[in-house]
Design a binder for these strands. Structure first.
Lengths: 218, 218
DNA sequence: AAATATAATTAGGTAAGCCTAAGTATTATT
DNA sequence: AATAATACTTAGGCTTACCTAATTATATTT
């Protein structure tokens, strides 16, 4: 039988906490992410372990099994496809989509998911710049590129800089940009190709074309 | 707070049983429609009565209040809009849509509902020929009648079916009958009241009295 | 009117998913 | 090593929405 909405949400939470690493989600992190009491988490993790969707024990926390991973990715795929649909076709803004997508991601129909994917033109990224798993669960691999070559509105991560001069690094520091920081290009100014960039803390800064070209993002 | 999926389903069931008339749904009919035990229905009807979504007592059965009616129509609106979307844009056939639409009808977002309506071009009827309530809950009125009540030799149009089961829809498909098709009753067979019907492509098929009674024409 | 059938209700129980409060491990600090 | 802080589990309970079996109320027959 299919997973419940709640089970799907737990798998998704573990997926988002563990990421690509070999981390193991703790009860507390999961409880916080889902807004439930840690005692409730214990119950559900045990249940998911029994169903072989996760590996779980008190000492090491929770890790998705192959099957659990598959299910989590499927839910993420649906979530991101629906977000794309809402923004592209239903006139939602990227900050309005989350709540509705949280509901839509639990609709159970592989046919619908795949038709939606087709309808949208097999998008690789959702409106937040997060990669959309394909029908086989594969995620687009992002290879870093200079900031000016990245698209607008995608969630980017600073992975490296091509100028290690003190002057440049100090400049970045002053702007509030550091390695591994997330940022989003809000706008490309037409006449001088400078970029309006939103940083983590909702702070916005302008970067000249020269400066931006030295920042590699993912 | 918003209604639960189950509450919405009860209201919808009462709506579909009572129709436009002043009927009052009985526990048994509701139980049958929802596939639950009559004892469970008693519980829920009492709860809906307390919430003033229905008027309920043992003697007269259940009737929607103004608010309950509003909620039911809203769910029906969503159901039929999603069905239309699935057929028009997701390559579903009209006999495939029901199960998924049962899930989609519970998505809570007025903005999404109205944007979907707009996206679809404010359709008046769904793929089964059922009228779609507009944003104010108003339904297009159709003066249609069951096929056996229509006269012989008149050009008729299939506007709706009163049985949306997969079995019936597949049967119609096989006979070559689809929504909005034109047809003409050539003959009423006396002894069993079955109908000889001529379809668009000059093709003639026999329809039993039972099957014909579920086809509404204009 | 009495007997029977049908419909609805009551009583007691279950499972999922959550809670609080109290207790037990584990890890960090002194 | 002893104490304190943090993390997790246990125990007992709650709500929703369902169930079965037994009972009561209403209709229908005879």
């Amino acid at each position: 039988m299919p997973l419940s909405t709640t089970e799907e949400n737990y798998l998704k939470a573990i997926f988002s906490i563990n990421g690509a690493n070999d981390n193991r989600a703790t009860n507390q992190l999961i409880a916080e992410k889902l807004g439930v009491n840690p005692a409730s988490v214990t119950d559900m993790l045990r249940k998911l372990d029994e169903k072989r969707l996760i590996d779980y024990n008190r000492a090491d926390g929770a890790k998705l099994t192959k099957e659990g991973f598959k299910q989590a990715v499927k839910t993420v795929r649906k979530h991101r496809l629906w977000e794309t649909f809402l923004v592209n076709n239903m006139n939602f803004t990227w900050d309005e989509v989350h709540e509705v997508a949280e509901q839509l991601e639990h609709i159970q129909s592989d046919k619908l998911t795949d038709e939606l994917d087709k309808f949208l033109g097999y998008p690789k990224f959702d409106p937040h710049g997060d990669p959309i798993p394909d029908a086989n669960g594969k995620l687009a691999v992002v290879k870093s590129k200079p900031l000016p070559e990245a698209g607008v509105a995608r969630k980017l991560k600073v992975v490296s800089v091509t100028d290690n001069s003190t002057a440049f690094l100090k400049y970045l520091d002053k702007q509030g940009i550091a390695l591994n920081d997330s940022l989003v290009i809000k706008e490309v100014v037409d006449f001088d190709k400078s970029l309006l960039v939103e940083l983590k803390g909702r702070k916005e800064v302008f970067l000249s074309k020269e400066a931006a070209g030295k920042i590699l993002v993912d």
